[in-house]
Design a protein around this nucleic acid. Structure first.
Lengths: 121, 121
DNA sequence: TATGTAAATGCACTTCCTTTGCATTATTTT
DNA sequence: AAAATAATGCAAAGGAAGTGCATTTACATA
């Protein structure tokens, strides 16, 4: 099961929701998928993305990704046309300055707009 | 009613959820608050913040804010200790480069960590 | 091979939040 | 004052995340 889900995520180029996975695996129960992905997340195999749509999306981490805040934070692009979220893994998040007293532990950067596929149509 | 809600938002220094507002106005109905805030959002009086907690938060726009992508996008800081989200209006979001073909319309940047209040305790 | 233990699965249910439909009440306009 | 428009409240729907428990499957070891 886990292998199947892993494969599914690997084939998808975009981040998927739990429902997406559910639709892909009609036979399996929602809970199984939920917990499997949760296991993946806990083991840094996939990362969660909150793209502002209200539903969490998941995507495989890059090869060699350690989910480390300093090196592995890339930005995500949410297309408001096709509703897909892609990982722009080559685009690391720039250094963000926070005021005195604030300690930053994590950064989430989502760019919303039209993706390359939709803009070329 | 709208004036009251506006005042409430103005007094709050942090972004609030719908529930927060609900607790502040026990007499008013949830729907009224919801719709009022929605109206505010549509008229660029407040902006929505998705800080990754799963519940949308709202905060007044700055004076003179036109919710314009080029000038008014500031970053938000979510404190994982006190669960509060503050607008760092002085910290504009840096220029984000997206690949060829992508058209960016909006940028959402949330830094997660410990806020100044909590770090000094 | 039998069997005991741990992990994985499925079902049902709960909870939380957002959103909408509809009837009622208030407010404005003519 | 009557008509039109807007605002409110109640109820309920809808979506999604998460949990408890029982059952099944897999695995290791005696």
């Amino acid at each position: 099961m886990r292998l199947l889900i892993y494969k599914f995520l690997a084939e998808k180029k975009v981040a998927v929701t739990l429902s997406d996975t559910e639709n892909a695996f009609v036979k399996a129960d929602r809970t199984t998928l939920y917990r499997t992905i949760k296991t993946f997340v806990e083991n840094d195999i996939v990362h969660q993305i909150d793209d502002g749509t209200g539903t969490i999306k998941y995507a495989l981490c890059e090869v060699g990704c350690s989910c480390d805040i300093k090196t592995d934070l890339h930005l995500h692009f949410y297309c408001s046309n096709c509703n897909e979220t892609v990982c722009l893994t080559d685009h690391k998040i720039p250094q963000i300055n926070v005021p005195e007293g604030f300690i930053s532990e994590n950064v989430n950067l989502v760019v919303k707009g039209i993706c390359n596929k939709c803009s070329s149509m």
